[in-house]
Every structure is written in C-alpha cells, then in structure tokens.
C-alpha cells in the first residue's frame, strides 16, 4: 500500500506524483510545494514522469509558518 503523508491511501501503484498532487487538490505550478518518495526528493520537473512503486512512502510538503 502506498503511504501518503503518513497515512495509508488507495493510490494505485504506477500512479505518477503529478496524479497524487492533483488528487490532493494541488496545482502543479503551486509555489512552496515539494515531494519526497522513500526519502528522496522528486524534483518538480519529474513529477509528471515519476511513478510510484507498490509500497512507496510519499511525503507532500508545503510552506508553514516557523521560526
């Protein structure tokens, strides 16, 4: 099962990072968004082509207020 931001999801293996972001309601040109899969950064330029493996752990992060 693909884990999305720490929780199990019904995202199917083979989905692209871009598809996941769209499902989350994020625009692909959104500023301040970054994605890691299995602890590795997926560059914005690869969002459309990077496909998720069966047990991928996906982190989708954005800007938050912080010191």
């Amino acid at each position: 099962m693909i884990v999305l931001n720490g929780e199990g999801s019904d995202v199917a293996a083979g989905a692209t990072v871009a598809a996941v972001l769209e499902r989350m309601g994020l625009a692909l040109d959104a500023r301040g968004v970054a994605v890691a899969v299995d602890g590795e950064v997926v560059p914005r330029t690869a969002w459309g082509s990077f496909t998720l493996g069966e047990d991928a752990r996906v982190e989708v992060l954005t800007a938050m207020q912080g010191g």
Partner: peptide, 9 residues
C-alpha cells in the same frame, strides 16, 4: 524564515 510541513497539517 519558513518551515516545511505536510500538506493539510
């Protein structure tokens, strides 16, 4: 400064 956190948190 800005931080990074999970979307939706």
């Amino acid at each position: 400064t800005v931080a990074l956190r999970r979307v939706g948190s």
